Simulated assay, not measured.
Amino acid sequence: MIRVVVADDQQLIRAGFRSLLDAEDDIEVVGEAATGTEVIGVVRRERPDVVLMDIRMPDGDGLWATEQIATFPELAATRIVVVTTFEVDEYVARAIRAGASGFLVKDTEPVELIRAVRVVAAGDALLSPGVTKRLLARFAGGSSVVIDDSVLSAITTREREVLGLVGQGSRMQRSAKSSS
Rank of each mutant, 00 (worst) to 15 (best):
V51A: 10
M53E: 07
I55F: 07
I55S: 00
R56S: 09
M57E: 04
M57A: 12
P58T: 04
D59T: 00
D61T: 06
G62H: 11
W64F: 06
A65H: 03
T66R: 08
Q68Y: 08
T71F: 05
T71G: 05
P73K: 08
T78R: 04
R79N: 08
I80M: 12
V81I: 15
V82K: 01
V83H: 07
T85F: 09
V88S: 11
A98I: 12
A98K: 02
G99L: 07
K106E: 07
D107G: 07
T108V: 08
E112I: 15
R115N: 03
R115H: 02
V117S: 02
V117C: 04
R118F: 09
V119K: 12
V120A: 11
A121C: 11
A121M: 07
A122D: 03
A125H: 06
L127T: 12
S128W: 12
S128C: 12
P129Q: 02
P129C: 09
V131N: 05
V131I: 11
L135H: 08
L136A: 10
A137L: 00
R138E: 08
R138I: 09
F139C: 07
A140N: 06
G141A: 13
S144T: 14
S144W: 06
I147E: 04
I147W: 08
L152Y: 09
S153F: 00
E159S: 15
E161M: 05
L163Q: 01
G167E: 12
Q168Y: 08
G169W: 13
M172G: 01
M172Y: 05
